[in-house]
Write a protein that binds this DNA or RNA. Sequence first.
RNA 1: GGCGACAUAGCCAAGCGGUAAGGUCGAGGUCUGCAAAACCUUUAUCCCCGGUUCGACUCCGGGUGUCGCCUCCA
Length: 479
Amino acid sequence: MIKVYNTLTRRKEEFVPLKAGEASIYCCGVTPYNEPHIGNARPFVTWDVIRRHLARRGFKVRYIQNFTDVDDKIINAARVDGSDWKTIADRYITRYFAAMDALNVKRADVYPRVSETIPDIVGMIDGLISSGHAYTVEGGDVYFSVENFAGYGKLSRRSLEDMEAGARVEVNDNKRHPMDFALWKAAKPGEPSWQSPWGKGRPGWHIECSAMSLKFLGEKFDFHGGGSDLIFPHHENEIAQSQAYLDDESAFARYFLHNGFITIRNEKMSKSLNNFFTVADVLKEFSGETLRFYILQTHYRSPLDFSEERMTEAKAALTRLRHTAEQIKMFAGREGNGNNAGQLADTAAKLSADFDEAMDDDFNSALAIGYMFDLSKKINAYCQSVTDGGEFDAVNFAKATTVFAEMASVIGIFEQEENAAATSINDDLAAKLMDIIITLRQRARQEKNWPIADEIRDRLKDVGVVIKDTKNGAVWERR
RNA sequence: GGCGACAUAGCCAAGCGGUAAGGUCGAGGUCUGCAAAACCUUUAUCCCCGGUUCGACUCCGGGUGUCGCCUCCA
C-alpha cells in the first residue's frame, strides 16, 4: 500500500489511483527567465524518483510538466537582454533541460507551454465568465471572483477574512474583492499578446496549469506537485479555477504533494533573495549525481540546507555506494559453484522489501537509501571474502546484486557512467595508458623499488587518478 | 497581525506509543612495503515544563527557539 502526505487533508493517506494501475501526475514546471537554481531542481528530482517508484510498483505513469513561458519576469528579462520573450524562454528552457540531464531526471511525457495553449486558456476563461466566476473590467483585464467560489482557501487552510487581515494585498480599485486574481491581462505596448474576446492580452499566472492539466490529464487526475511556496496562491487558485469551471468540487488533483525548500544558512533560497546557487554553479565542483543524491538523502518534505560541507558529505557517501557498484561489475560474469552466499541473498531480499516499504511510505528516499547502505556493506564483505580466497556463489551473488541494481535505478544513480564512458573517445586510450603505467609500477614494486612506485602513485594522484593496490593487482579510478 | 511547519549524537538525517536506521567526521583494530579502499569495533536517550498511558522521542496542553506562507518564488 502506497501512502502519501496530502496537503489537502494534512495527513498521510492511502494512494488509491483514479484508474486502476495508472498514475497521472501534473508537476508545476519553471518560468524560464533565469538559470535554474538548485531549489528549482528539488521538486523535479523528487518527482523523478516518485515516478520511478510508481513504475516499479506496476503503475503506468503519465507525467506532465509545464513551462510558463509567458510571464512578466520573462518580459522583463527580454527587455534587459535586448531580445524578445521567445528568445529568453527558449534559452532558459534549454538550460533547464541541461540541468535535468545532469541530474539524471527523466523527461516528462509532455511539456506544454503557455504560448502553445492559449486557445484552451481563453476557452476556460470564457467559461468562467459565463458561469459568473469571473468578470471583465475596464481596460480588458479579467479577474477570478474568489467570493463566488465557496471552497476558496481549502488547500492553504485560510479564510478570505484571514487573508485580508494580512493587509498585504495590492490595492486595485478595479477588483471586486482584494483577493481576486487575474485570469487575463490586457496587452501593454511592447508585450506579447494574443487575441481574445476581451481584447488583446495574455494569460495571468495561474490559469495555465488549470488549462493544461485539463487538456492533458482530464478533469481529474491523481497527483499535483511543486514546492510548498506554491500552495498559496498558485495551487489554491488552480483549484478554484478548475473546480469552478467544471462545476465539480471533486475535479482537479486528488493528492497534493509539496516539497520543502532548499535553504542557505537556514534561509529559503530564492531568486528574489538572490541567495541561490544555480545547478551550473554546483556542477563546477560536484557531479550532478552527487547533487541528486544529496537531495534524496533527505525526505522531500523536510527543509534541506545547502552548503559545500553537506555536498562533500554526500559525495563521500555516494562514493561508498559506487564502490559497491564497481565491485559488482568486477564480479560480473565470473563463474562459481559455491554455496556460501545464501544468507547474502536472503538479506538482500529482506532489504529489498524494506526499501520498497520505505518508498511506499510517502516516498521516504532517505530511509530507503539507508537500506541501500546496509546492502552495500553486506555485498562488500562478501566480495572481500571471495577476494581473500573464499568460494564464489555466482547464483546467490547475482540475486543480491540484482537487488542493489534495482535500488540504484529507483534512486536514479549509477546510470550515467556507462553512457559517459561509451561516448568518450579518450577513455579507451586512457585505459591502455593506465595499463602500461600500472604494469611498470608493478615491476618496480616487485623489485621493492618503493620510491619509484610511490612517485608514480603520487604523481597520478596529482592529476586526479587514484591507485589502489589490491590482492588481485592494482586498480585505478578518477577522482 | 493571521495561518502553518520544524526542534533527534560533533555535523547531516530517518523513526513517531514499547526502551533510537543510515551517512559524515573522529578513535581503535584487520589488511598493506607504505598508502588508499574495504571490513570489524566504538560515539545520543530525542529543546524545556506539565498531562494522558502499564509504557512517550513518538499523543495532548503550555513555554522557548528556528523557519515558512499571507507579495514574484520550486
